[in-house]
C-alpha cells in the first residue's frame, strides 16, 4: 500500500504542478471532505448493523449461524479461532443475502481476530472473497434502471449472477494457486 500510494501520489503531484497548479490544494481538500461525508454515511450503516449484530451475538443467533457454516469455513480459512469463525460465517451470510453494508463490520472483526493468530492467509482470503463481491441480487442497479424507465429492469439479474460467481470463483482459485506455488 505504501508503494502504490507513493507512486500514484507523486505522479499526480508532478503532473498537476504543470497542468493545473492552482487545483492542487482544492483537490486535496475536496478529497478530505469526501472522506468525511463517506465516514458519516458509513457510520449510519454501521450504527444500524452493528447494533443489530450485537443483539444477534448476545442472543446466540450468530453462534448458531457459525455452527452451520463451520465445517466449510474451518477448512477454507484454516483457522480454529471460534470468534473469527463466527464473524466469517456472519459475513458470508450477509453477502449472500445482498446486504453488503452489514457484511463489512463482520469482515473487519474477523480480520482483527485473525490478526491475533497471525493468520495472514485467512485474512487475505476473506478480503479476496469480499472484494470480488458475492452478491446475489444487485439491488442498487436494478433500482437505478427501473427509475430510468427500463422496460425490464430485472433482466440483468442472470448475467449479474453469472458474473459475480465467475469473478469470485476465479479469484479464489487464483488465490489458492498462488499460495500453493509460493509454498512449494
Amino acid at each position: 500500500m505504501n508503494v502504490i500510494f507513493t507512486v500514484i501520489f507523486f505522479l499526480s503531484l508532478t503532473v498537476i504542478a504543470f497542468t493545473a497548479p492552482d487545483k492542487l490544494l482544492s483537490s486535496l481538500l475536496g478529497g478530505a471532505e469526501n472522506a468525511a461525508k463517506m465516514a458519516l454515511t458509513l457510520f449510519c450503516i454501521y450504527a444500524v448493523w452493528l447494533g443489530l449484530s450485537r443483539l444477534a451475538e448476545k442472543s446466540g443467533l450468530s453462534q448458531a449461524a457459525a455452527k452451520g457454516l463451520r465445517p466449510l469455513s474451518r477448512k477454507l480459512f484454516k483457522t480454529e479461532n471460534p470468534k473469527a469463525l463466527e464473524n466469517i460465517a456472519m459475513n458470508l451470510s450477509c453477502n449472500l443475502l445482498g446486504i453488503g453494508g452489514a457484511a463489512t463490520p463482520y469482515a473487519v472483526k474477523a480480520v482483527k481476530e485473525l490478526d491475533k493468530d497471525g493468520n495472514e492467509y485467512a485474512q487475505k482470503l476473506l478480503f479476496v472473497i469480499n472484494a470480488t463481491s458475492i452478491q446475489i441480487i444487485p439491488t442498487t442497479v436494478i433500482a437505478l434502471r427501473a427509475s430510468a424507465g427500463s422496460a425490464a429492469a430485472f433482466d440483468i439479474f442472470l448475467p449479474s449472477l453469472i458474473c459475480t460467481v465467475i469473478s469470485t470463483s476465479v479469484a479464489v482459485l487464483l488465490y489458492f494457486a498462488v499460495n500453493k506455488l509460493w509454498r512449494t
Partner: peptide, 12 residues
C-alpha cells in the same frame, strides 16, 4: 480519497 481526487484533477 485525497489520492483519488488528486489523480482525477491532475488529468492522469
Amino acid at each position: 480519497f485525497m489520492l483519488c481526487e488528486l489523480f482525477e484533477a491532475s488529468g492522469l
